[in-house]
Nucleic acid binder design. Structure first.
Length: 355
DNA sequence: AATCCGGGGGG
DNA sequence: CCCCCAGGATT
């Protein structure tokens, strides 16, 4: 039997039941594919269900405000995905009258849709012969062909895409693509693959050579920079001071308690914070006590963050613009909080309810 | 080609 | 703890 035959027979018996596999609505496929970018299936499920309750159709999403869209994405990470999805959906609404294109070439021109996502959408929703090469597919095929070069290289991706296409079952392109992903997620996993359960064990060249734990070749990991951050919880009556992060960069556009990065060598962390509050935000604050501290790890950076509860000595005028506001907890629900600030906001809300 | 962009859970 | 995940945009 052909590679695709073995694969699809396995898939038919073992495919995962997932919320976005209930039908082939291209809008739902699109949403799921964007959520799944660099994000595990288990983490996506609940977000996907909530999303579809609020934005059941492409038209509903296209009409939504970005702020609300971000709120429904809060906690999933890579927030540009949400912004680009909204942008892309609006493009399709405007340029294609709300009908999602059925060719990979057209889909790739839409915001937030790259080679992988375009291929996944048209193969799954429209049964078009198109490759969708993600991390799973790279791993599975680099093992099948015992490819000994770094999969991060564009040359590796080009070669593997060619193999994926050569072996494609053209009668079921969507299932073929998803079958490889399911195999990669459950059997052909990164460190120690479960080869004895694999339908492709007999045709896998890495397995034949005993190299299934060596392939794919792993690239060196990047250094993670540690940054100290001080944040303050400043209250005036029932309102707390909140600030929106810049529109570009880390956690773009997300809300947080006013915070500042401080040097490793700084011994008086609150002193640095007090100065920042006075100079940049025009507020005089004093430390009341430690509220919370935590370590937040990003892919390329690490925050060691301390939240101090502050007393407002003298309330000043806030800098012009809408990026910093006094806001009561009842109005927080529509905001998207940045990383660890979300946990602190939830703790504060809980604390206030108990009083 | 290299870097940036989050968060979470598997192993 | 380490790894890396149904990647895309930007430079």
């Amino acid at each position: 039997m052909s590679l695709a035959g073995l694969l699809l027979a396995w898939y038919d018996a073992n495919k995962r039941e997932l919320p976005w596999r209930q039908d082939k609505d291209p809008y739902k496929i699109w949403v799921s594919e964007v959520m799944l970018q660099q994000t595990r299936v288990e983490a996506v499920k609940a977000y996907f269900e909530r999303w579809l309750e609020r934005f059941p159709t492409l038209e509903d999403l296209a009409a939504a405000a970005e702020e609300e869209v971000l709120h429904y994405w809060q906690g999933l990470g890579y927030y540009s995905r949400a912004r680009n999805l909204l942008k892309g959906v609006r493009e399709v609404q405007a340029q294609y009258n709300g009908r999602i294109p059925d060719t990979k070439e057209k889909m790739k021109t839409v915001a937030g849709v790259g080679d992988y996502t375009a291929g996944a959408i048209v193969s799954i929703a429209y049964n078009k012969t198109a490759t969708a090469v993600d991390g799973n597919v790279l791993r599975v095929f680099s093992r099948l062909y015992c490819w000994r070069e770094d999969n991060a290289l564009s040359s590796s991706k080009r070669q593997i895409t060619e193999w994926v296409l050569q072996n494609m079952e053209v009668s079921r392109p969507g299932d073929y693509n998803q079958a490889i992903m399911d195999l990669g997620a459950t059997i052909c996993i990164p460190a120690v693959p479960r080869c004895s359960l694999c339908p492709l064990e007999t045709v896998c060249q890495a397995r034949r050579r005993g190299l299934e734990q060596v392939v794919p070749f792993r690239r060196k990991k990047m250094a993670v920079k540690t940054v100290r951050v001080v944040a303050g919880i400043v209250q005036d009556g029932g309102a707390f001071l909140l600030r929106q992060r810049p529109a570009k960069g880390l956690l773009a556009g997300m809300w947080e308690f006013p915070a500042t990065e401080i040097a490793d060598t700084e011994t008086d962390d609150f002193g640095a914070y007090r100065r920042m509050m006075a100079e940049k935000l025009g507020q005089q604050v004093e430390r009341e006590g430690l509220f919370w501290q935590s370590r937040h790890v990003f892919s390329h950076r690490q925050w060691d963050i301390v939240f101090y509860r502050c007393r407002l000595i003298k309330k000043g005028d806030l800098p012009a613009g809408k990026n910093i506001v006094w806001l009561e907890p009842s109005a927080w629900s529509r905001l998207a909080f940045a990383g660890p600030h979300r946990q602190v906001a939830e703790k504060l809300e809980k604390e206030l309810q108990n009083i």
